[in-house]
């Protein structure tokens, strides 16, 4: 296998994976952000209700 072919395959994998994973992150990330906010809000409420 020539170097040119190796680099073509490597680039195709890199670009394909980058595009695909980025799409998954864009879609699934929204739920995770919501969860993070909910957890932080919960923590804030818990701390606020705790007596000093």
């Amino acid at each position: 296998m020539s170097w040119a072919l190796v680099w073509l395959v490597a680039f195709a994998v890199a670009f394909g994976a980058f595009t695909l994973i980025s799409l998954v992150i864009a879609v699934r990330g929204v739920d995770e952000i919501r969860e993070l906010f909910a957890a932080l809000e919960e923590e804030r409420r818990r701390k606020a209700s705790r007596p000093e």
């Binding site: 998954v24 992150i25 995770e32 952000i33 969860e35 993070l36 957890a39 932080l40 923590e43 804030r44």
Partner: peptide, 26 residues
């Protein structure tokens, strides 16, 4: 807008250790 969630140094530096997989990767 998210400043209101910051209370302690742990919130500030490591988001109270609550980061998920996809948001973490991003």
């Amino acid at each position: 807008r998210v400043k209101r969630y910051i209370g302690t140094i742990e919130d500030y530096l490591v988001a109270n250790r609550g980061m998920g997989l996809y948001v973490g990767a991003a």
